[in-house]
């Protein structure tokens, strides 16, 4: 029996007030670590919102594990962009972690354990009782990352997870993603700068309102595709391990 596709996007279009944000996007992935990459305003976050069922396509269809996106939500651990999170009231880290780990008002002992374990994994267990708003931006990002992990999802979807995160913490997050992938978790990461995860990803979707290219990074990240996506010549550097790094946004993180 063929394996169920993780994501199947077929001819998907979406507009905001008549302005096309995505135009006839098609790609599919199966049990992989996938990066969605493109410039600002290229429709990356819109695509993610369609995949998790927050938006409905104007045209085309999306299936997640063979289901309508809203029916697959129990299988998804989601980390939104940090700009969408409220930081003006004293919600505590533990409240946020439990929100992610449990859909019940009174979480089970196992769910509490999962929340604590995820926090420990990112080295922030000591912040369990802390006010979220009292943490640095980077710490807040890591808490949201841990919340997505706490659900022990089959599919992790992370929207710009490395924003405002310092390099050591980012490397720790990448290491955790690598471990999750080894355990079989399927991962989609939206990134402006692909370099921190380039050695881990198996597929990349290059997006600028339409799907410029998708497939293995070595095949997709070519000067021609990058120029079409970003509208400028992007320099590519080959690292010691043989990966081709497009110099977008910041440094080659190795």
């Amino acid at each position: 029996m063929p394996e169920v596709k993780m994501i199947e996007v077929k001819d998907v279009s979406y507009s905001y007030n008549g302005k096309k944000a995505l135009d006839k996007i098609s790609f599919e992935t199966e049990n992989e670590f996938v990066a969605i990459m493109g410039p600002n305003g290229s429709g990356k976050s819109t695509l993610v919102k369609l995949i998790v069922g927050m938006l409905k396509p104007d045209e085309g269809s999306i299936k997640v594990f063979g289901m309508e996106p809203e029916n697959a939500r129990d299988l998804i651990g989601y980390m939104p962009q940090r700009e969408t999170i409220a930081k003006h009231f004293p919600i505590r880290v533990k409240d946020i972690m439990i929100m992610g780990a449990s859909s019940r008002r009174f979480p089970t002992r196992e769910e509490m354990g999962n929340a604590m374990e995820a926090l420990q994994k990112i080295g922030m267990k000591h912040l369990w009782e802390k006010r979220f708003s009292a943490l640095s931006q980077g710490q807040q990002q890591r808490i949201m990352f841990a919340r997505a992990l706490a659900k022990k999802p089959r599919l992790l979807i992370l929207d710009e997870p490395f924003n405002a995160v310092d390099v050591p913490s980012r490397n720790m997050m990448v290491e955790i993603l690598k471990e999750e992938r080894e355990k079989g978790t399927e991962i989609i990461v939206v990134v402006h700068n692909i370099n921190p995860i380039l050695h881990q990803i198996e597929k990349v979707v290059l997006l600028n309102r339409k799907c410029i290219a998708w497939g293995k990074p070595a095949h997709v990240l070519t000067p021609e595709n990058l120029k079409e996506t970003y509208g400028a010549d992007i320099q590519i550097v080959r690292c010691e391990e043989g990966y081709c790094h497009p110099l977008i946004g910041d440094e080659h993180a190795g």
């Binding site: 939500r73 989601y78 969408t84 999170i85 992610g100 008002r105």
Partner: peptide
């Protein structure tokens, strides 16, 4: 509904994905 009210106040997108 205190859990739902807090969740949508803190993170409406995350709440939506949580069902």
């Amino acid at each position: 509904f205190i859990r739902e009210f807090l969740f949508i106040s803190f993170d409406a997108e995350g709440a939506e994905v949580s069902g």
